[in-house]
Amino acid sequence: MACDDRPLLSARGLTRYYGRILGCRDVNFDIWPGEVLGIVGESGSGKTTVLKCISARLEPSAGTVTYDTRTEGPVDIHRISEPARRLLMRTDWGFVHQDPRDGLRMAVSAGANIGERLMAVGARHYGQIRETATNWLGKVEMDTGRMDDLPCTFSGGMQQRLQIARNLVTAPRIVFMDEPTGGLDVSVQARLLDLLRGLVSDLGLAAVVVTHDLAVTRLLSHRLLVMRHGTVVETGLTDQVLDDPQHPYTQLLVSSVLHP
């Protein structure tokens, strides 16, 4: 990871209002390839708004989000055509929702959930799609014998792992995650975190992880943004922000946790 290369994604002056209500204001950051950025803050601090704006799920009121595409170099994702944006979302990006039911198709099998993303990028050979899907179920530590079962027969932790497989099968360059371990019990959380850590470093993925859980962010992210009332109050290396927090709000956040 050289220090003079280009960021994969840059947010500048990112601002979003919901009518008169502030979502986020003047948010600036860069993410480089292979880097995991954590966004922490309490409920309503604007972290999910930022995540939606940088993943083209929500249009900002002001500011730009620049993404370094494989073919055309940096583009403003909110200015390109809808088909171009859709293509990025299908191929280069993954989005892991807190509730796996928002990211999975519950009425089709586990294998089809993975295969569908592949077909969306042009895969047509049934045998190969099935093989890749099987392979990915293995990578997310799922019993490949459950390939033809519906996601509604899976536990929450299994559904979350399936959602991750569905996202990673197209070899995205950046994955956006909204509270990926949110609804899971602690032992399942640890397993999922370990899995995510391994996948992110093996695949050289960039990721943005929104969470209110500081322990999650310490394990997963290289750098941290701390948000409050829609603005970024502190940024830095994860261990530096958590061990030597400067802003009063970050100090409050860190001191309120039992085991950060």
Binding site: M1, E35, H222, G236
Partner: peptide, 8 residues
């Protein structure tokens, strides 16, 4: 140093 440089 930038955080990325610190990591390096």
């Amino acid at each position: 140093a930038h955080p990325r440089e610190v990591l390096a």
